[in-house]
Each structure stands twice: as structure tokens, then as C-alpha cells.
């Protein structure tokens, strides 16, 4: 089964990103594929590589990066939501003349069309939000 996952909340504030991660992990363990995880609204904050949670806490952005590396998952931050919230990849840094980028490994920034495409292509679309 091919899954699309939509994450609408940022890390640490709300359980949504944790639930989405645990769902994605379980789906993969059951032999299914994740077509794409799309991060929208404050969900784009899951893609920062600058988070430094305490050692005894889970590292939410890194956890997504690791899962994506191991299982070839497409992690997409919505560009409009990302720009508003200061999530920047190297291309966006150049285009908007910023002095840094802050995107974590395996995440990429793209348009909302990627979410619609996930709705069309995936056999199941599940949303985790507030």
C-alpha cells in the first residue's frame, strides 16, 4: 500500500509529528511504502537542522531525516508556509538573499502541488494535525 502523510503541526508543541512518525515507521515495518510526507502550516518547522533538544528527549527533525535516509521517503516542506516561517534551503537562501539556510538532511522545499499530487498518487492519505 502506498501512503501519503500530511503533518500540520510543528515539533514538540503538539503530538501530531510524533504520531505521524510512529505511523510511518509502523507502515514501513508492515511492508508498505510512504510516497511522501508533506509538512504544512507550522509543520514545516519539523525540517529545521538547528533544533537542539535536551539529550534525554527525542530529536524530532533528525528522526525524520534518519527514517527518510533508510527508506527513501520524500520529505517536503511547503514553500509558502516555509518562507513565512523562515525555513530556508540553499536555493531559497540564494533566491531570497538570506545569510543562511537551516533545512535538515533529506528535507526539501516545494510547492503545494506536491500535496495534491500525494492525494492523487497515494492510495491512502492520512493527516496528523491539531
Amino acid at each position: 500500500m502506498l501512503f501519503g502523510i500530511l503533518v500540520n503541526e510543528g515539533p514538540y508543541q503538539h503530538q501530531a509529528s510524533d504520531s505521524a512518525y510512529l505511523f510511518a515507521k509502523a507502515a514501513i515495518e508492515e511492508g508498505h511504502k510512504i510516497f511522501r510526507v508533506f509538512f504544512y502550516h507550522d509543520g514545516v518547522n519539523n525540517g529545521t537542522r538547528l533544533a537542539t533538544p535536551p539529550q534525554d528527549d527525542r530529536h524530532i527533525p533528525n528522526r525524520w531525516s534518519e527514517l527518510a535516509k533508510e527508506h527513501e521517503i520524500d520529505l517536503v516542506l511547503c514553500v509558502a508556509a516555509a518562507q513565512r516561517r523562515g525555513m530556508v534551503d540553499p536555493d531559497e537562501m540564494k533566491r531570497n538573499k538570506k545569510d543562511a539556510d537551516n533545512i535538515a538532511e533529506k528535507f526539501r522545499i516545494s510547492g503545494l502541488g506536491q500535496l495534491i499530487e500525494a492525494g492523487v498518487q497515494a492510495e491512502r492519505l492520512i493527516t496528523f494535525g491539531d
Binding site: 501512503f3 500540520n8 505511523f23 515507521k25 507502515a27 491512502r124 492520512i126
Partner: peptide, 20 residues
């Protein structure tokens, strides 16, 4: 149910509606 059961429910049911 556990997360595995959660995944299985999303497969048994063709569609999903998430009430937030």
C-alpha cells in the same frame, strides 16, 4: 490497538477522514 493495528485499519478501510 497498537500502531501496527492503526496501519492495518487504514488498509482495511479504503478512505480516511481525520477529525482534528
Amino acid at each position: 490497538i497498537d500502531y501496527k493495528g492503526f496501519v492495518n485499519l487504514t488498509i482495511e478501510n479504503e478512505k480516511i477522514q481525520n477529525w482534528l
